[in-house]
Amino acid sequence: MHSSEPRHSPARRGLWWGLGAVVALLAIAASAVLFWPRTAEVTAPAPSPRAPAETPLPTPEPTPTSTGFPVNTSIYDTSALPQVDVFAVIPALPVDADPSQPFAGFAARSKETAAPVWADPTGEPVAALPRDFEFDGTTVAVVEKQEHWLRVLLTGRQALPSAGNSAQLSGWVRTADVDLTPVDATVEVSLTARTIDIVRGEARERIATDFASGTADTPTPLGRSFVMMTRVVPEFGYTRGNPMIYLSVQSPTLDGFGGDPAAVTAFHYHDARSGAISNGCIRLDAEAIAKLSQLPQGTGVRILP
């Protein structure tokens, strides 16, 4: 089909000019887009280098504070003090105030000829613990351990039973004055259950399920004590040559025994060894005595009702 208008009519020419103008404008616009200088990208300024965070200095740990009583470095003349031994009666020394408490796991012995002993570490010494004595008792059980001081059990008595309290004696010594030895065992006696155990940590070795003990008039003393001396005493025929294990505690009712001014409690052999029949000692068979005799001096012993 043909248009009714002539090919070169003014109307047709106008149309072409209009189209050309549009194309030209589009081309110019495209060029503007293509060649218009781009705005430089604004880059955020690099952060200025930061000073490294200061590492805080570790807080110095405080110097350990001395626990317990303060140190005492004074020198004392122990020869002027009453000697702690099995025959001593020293009213200035206290009895064991905590007999149900555990032992500290150490035994102590004086480094020198004797170590001063205190009733109160803030005061003056009232006795002297010898390094050696013919009936031993110089290696003592520790029941409280501080940095500078040790509370120990001692042989001897505060008073005779007829005049006062004859229970287990105690006192304080300076840590610097003694040699300490670890003790891994304690002996536990139950008078009601009639049992004796050697205890090491959680392990218990039962060494007796029956034994003889004190009567109502001469009871076996209760509470804490320690092995004072282990010795064979041939003149005591009832022991049949078995050793006696002497303890640091003495009778609560007898001032003395067998002509001696002491009434020491002991584990020992006896043919009659069942029931409440003794003067306070604990009578055992030979096998139990052999096991007890292997324990070192200063081993703790606890006797329960």
Rank of each mutant, 00 (worst) to 15 (best):
Y76G: 02
A80C: 00
V117F: 02
A107F: 07
W118C: 02
T139G: 10
A108H: 06
T63P: 08
R50K: 11
G105I: 09
A107T: 11
D85W: 00
A88P: 05
T65E: 13
P121H: 06
P64W: 15
I75V: 15
P102G: 08
A114P: 02
F103M: 08
P45A: 14
R131C: 11
V126A: 14
V140T: 15
S74E: 05
A44R: 07
P58V: 08
D85H: 12
E124V: 13
V84Y: 07
A119L: 04
D77R: 14
S48G: 07
P125V: 05
F133W: 07
P64F: 14
R131N: 09
A115W: 11
I90F: 11
A53P: 11
T59D: 03
L129H: 05
A127M: 11
P64N: 08
E134Q: 12
P130I: 04
S48N: 01
S74W: 00
P52G: 11
W118S: 05
D98Q: 14
V140H: 11
G137T: 13
A80Q: 13
R50I: 05
E134K: 15
T138G: 03
P91E: 12
A53G: 10
D132A: 15
T113G: 02
A128G: 06
T138S: 09
A46F: 00
L81A: 01
E112G: 02
T55W: 06
D77W: 13
F87T: 15
P49K: 06
S66N: 12
P58R: 12
F133A: 05
P94L: 06
A141T: 15
A46D: 01
A114L: 02
D136K: 12
A88D: 03
T63I: 15
F133G: 03
P64I: 06
T65Y: 12
T73K: 06
F87P: 00
P45C: 07
F69Q: 06
R131A: 13
A115L: 00
S79D: 13
Y76D: 04
D85V: 03
P56N: 02
V117N: 06
A141W: 11
T139A: 11
V140P: 02
G68W: 02
T43K: 14
P91N: 10
T78G: 10
P56C: 05
S48P: 00
A51F: 10
V84R: 04
P121R: 08
I90P: 01
A114W: 02
Q101V: 03
P49C: 03
